[in-house]
Computed example of a mutant assay.
Amino acid sequence: MLRDLRTNYQKSELTEESINSDPFRQLEEWLKSAIDEKNQEPTAMVLSTVDARGFPDSRVVLLKEINSDGLVFFTNYNSKKGRQITASPNVAVNFFWSKMERQVRIKGVAEQIPEEYSVDYFKSRPIDSQLGAWASPQSRIIENRKFLEENFSLYQHYFQDHEIIKPPHWGGFLIRPEYFEFWQGRSNRLHDRIAFQKSNGAWDIFRLAP
C-alpha cells in the first residue's frame, strides 16, 4: 500500500551554524555533493510557472549555470514555459537529491539572458542537440513521431552545407532568486528547514518547522 511506504531520513543534519550565510554558495555546495555522490541528473530541477488561467504548470529542466545573479537554464522561447514566463515572470524551482535526502526550493523572477550568451552556449551543445532545437516546435501539437524524425532529417540535410546557427526562438532564462529554502531529511519527520528571504538587498535567515 502507498500509505505504508516511508523512509526514515538520517544521513545528515542542517544547522544555523553549518549553513553558509550566502544561499548561492550553499546551493553550490549541495550541488557539488550531489554530483560527487553520483545522483542521477543532479542538475535537474522542477520549474513551475503559471498559465493564463492561473494554473501552476511544472516540468523538469536542467540547470546550466549558477552565477552571482541567479540560475540559468535554456529552452525554446515559444514553448509553453517560455510563453508563460514572458507573460508572468514569477517562477519557482525545486531540486531533490534522494541519495543525500536533500531538497532545495527557490522562488524568483525570470528574464531572458543576453543573446550573445545564448549563442555561446548553443555552440557548445552537441550537434544533434543543435539540430533538435531547429526540428522541434516545442509544446505544439504534432501529428506523430514521424513528423519529428522527418523534420530532424530535413535540418540535418540542410546544415550539411550551412553553419548551424542558434534558432531565434531558442535561448536562456536567468532566474533571480528572492527566496531559498534548504531541506535536510531527519529522523521521525523532524526535518531541518532553513530559509533565506531577500529583504532590502540582504538575506534574512530563519528556521521553519517541518
Rank of each mutant, 00 (worst) to 15 (best):
N76S: 11
D22Q: 10
E111T: 12
Q112C: 07
Y9S: 06
L63K: 04
V50E: 01
S187G: 13
R176T: 09
L27A: 10
R125M: 08
N20G: 03
E181I: 03
R105K: 12
M1A: 14
D69L: 13
E65R: 14
F196Y: 14
L62P: 04
N39R: 02
N8F: 14
G171R: 00
E41G: 00
A44C: 02
D57I: 10
L148V: 08
E115N: 11
D128Y: 14
F122Y: 13
R6N: 14
F206T: 02
L131S: 04
I194R: 00
G171K: 01
S124F: 08
T86K: 14
A133H: 02
T43R: 15
Q130M: 08
R193A: 09
Q184S: 04
E101K: 08
M100F: 05
W183D: 04
F24S: 03
V91W: 04
L2F: 11
A133F: 02
T15L: 06
F55M: 12
N67T: 11
L190S: 01
A52R: 15
N39D: 10
D120I: 12
P210K: 08
W203S: 00
P137S: 13
N200R: 11
G54Y: 04
G172K: 03
A195Q: 08
L62W: 02
R145T: 10
A133C: 05
A34I: 07
P114K: 06
